[in-house]
Amino acid sequence: MNGPEHDILVAFAKSWGLFYLIGLSIGVLVYTFWPGNRKNFDRAKKSIMDDESGPWA
């Protein structure tokens, strides 16, 4: 019941998915721990603590 077309799709799904997972994880980790982003993140997490004063002009 498994024709060649199906097998190729399955093999592609199985192997390529793994590379994709690894690539994506590395990308996310690099973005998260990029030293230059640290300042932005700190600012962002503190900035919500005082945001009721209305829109900035």
């Binding site: 993140f41 700190d42 997490k45």
Partner: peptide
């Protein structure tokens, strides 16, 4: 503030 902004990302 949230404990870790990086964890949230």
């Amino acid at each position: 503030p949230i404990f870790s902004y990086r964890m949230s990302i």
